[in-house]
Amino acid sequence: MKIETTINNQKKELNVKNYTEPLLDVLRRHGYVGTKEGCRSGQCGACVVLVNGLPVNSCIYPAGRASGKKITTIEGIGIPNKLDKIQQSYLESGAVQCGYCTPGMILCTKSLLDKNPAPTDEEIKLALDGNLCRCTGYVKIIDAVKLAAKKLKKSSHR
């Protein structure tokens, strides 16, 4: 079946095998391979995408339900040489090691900072509590979110 969505601000028609096909598989099949598979059980956050601005684990999200909704994937955040401030902050903070959890982390970061531009450490940890990382120990990821908040604040004051 076909469903109409908006992905990264562009109208997009998705071919879906059936209503309950995981959104993860649908997105990857349509070229959005920045969304990663980690556990297929909603536990690791590698597959996180934003649906109407809120993070969900796309591996357990029925694709049919995305009909009429706005989806944001990592591809919608920035591209090489045109990084957005969150992506830039992750790089500058040393928050990216293998990079496999990174798209999910960045999307949850975006969702947080969109709503809460000056989060406390506790709020940052809560926003990322569903994103598992085995490489970094999370320390520099939290640094990256704080740096991104700073950068975003600066640019909004201009």
Partner: peptide, 12 residues
């Protein structure tokens, strides 16, 4: 509610 699951799952 904050003891239930994690942020992305709480949205579902």
């Amino acid at each position: 509610t904050l003891t239930i699951a994690s942020t992305p799952n709480r949205n579902m």
